[in-house]
Simulated scan of single mutants.
Amino acid sequence: MAAEARLTSDFWVRAYLARLRLAAIPAFLTAKGDPTAGAVIVKVATLDGYARAWHRSYDTDFNRVWAELITGPDAEVEAELVRQRAYDPDLWIVEVEDREGRHLLDEDGLR
């Protein structure tokens, strides 16, 4: 089995923000982590007081996937991100603001 090519966190985040910009989905980098290997969390705020946060995980076949970390009132999601960042200062956090909850994480090249 061939090894999966790994992008640096900095490169992936810049590419992700560019992809969101092309889709006219507002997004902001709210925490910059380790440029090479920092984990990435994507928060999606639906601008109605609720949000979801996604992180990289593995499925049952050990494939890398985006998994939901937390969903709920925006303040609760934000509190969890503060806890995650305290635990891992190398963490990147991207915040997406979209009333429809679009994040593009399920698209080719971002999965």
Rank of each mutant, 00 (worst) to 15 (best):
E95D: 11
R111E: 10
A45F: 07
W12T: 08
L110W: 15
D74V: 14
R83D: 07
H103T: 13
V82R: 08
E78F: 06
W66C: 06
P73E: 14
V13T: 02
E68C: 10
A39H: 05
G49N: 02
A51Y: 00
A23Q: 07
P35Q: 00
T8H: 02
E95R: 11
G109N: 05
L105R: 02
A23M: 03
G49Y: 00
A15K: 09
T71D: 05
Y16H: 06
V82K: 00
V77A: 03
T71I: 12
Y87N: 15
A39C: 04
D48Q: 08
I70C: 11
D48E: 10
A24S: 13
R56T: 13
A31Y: 03
A39Q: 09
G38Q: 01
A45L: 08
A3G: 11
G33M: 03
G109V: 10
R83E: 04
D10N: 11
L17H: 01
A39M: 05
A79I: 10
V44W: 00
E4C: 11
V42R: 00
A27R: 00
D34F: 04
Y50H: 13
T71S: 15
F62S: 14
R111I: 15
L17G: 02
P35S: 03
T36I: 12
H103A: 10
H55L: 10
I70A: 11
A86Q: 15
D98P: 10
A3L: 14
T30W: 00
T60F: 11
R83N: 04
S57I: 02
V96W: 04
P89T: 09
V42D: 00
A37P: 09
V65G: 03
G72C: 07
D61N: 13
Y16N: 05
A67F: 05
E107S: 12
R64M: 12
L91M: 11
I25Q: 02
W66Q: 01
L91Q: 08
A31I: 08
Q84G: 06
V13D: 00
D74I: 14
T8M: 03
V77L: 01
P35R: 00
I93L: 05
L105I: 09
L29Q: 08
Y87L: 15
D88W: 03
Q84V: 09
R99L: 14
G101P: 07
P35D: 02
A75I: 14
R85H: 10
L7N: 12
D48G: 09
P35C: 06
M1S: 12
A86T: 13
K32T: 14
E68Q: 15
A5H: 14
L105M: 06
A45K: 07
D48M: 04
V42N: 03
E107C: 13
R56C: 07
V65N: 01
L81H: 01
E97P: 08
E78V: 12
T30Y: 01
W12K: 07
P73R: 14
V94A: 02
V13I: 04
A31Q: 12
G33Y: 06
L81A: 00
A86R: 11
W66M: 07
A2D: 13
W12C: 05
D88K: 07
A75S: 11
F11A: 13
G72Y: 02
V82M: 01
W92H: 13
E78D: 11
E76S: 13
G101F: 06
H55S: 06
A27T: 09
P26G: 08
R6S: 15
A45P: 06
L7I: 14
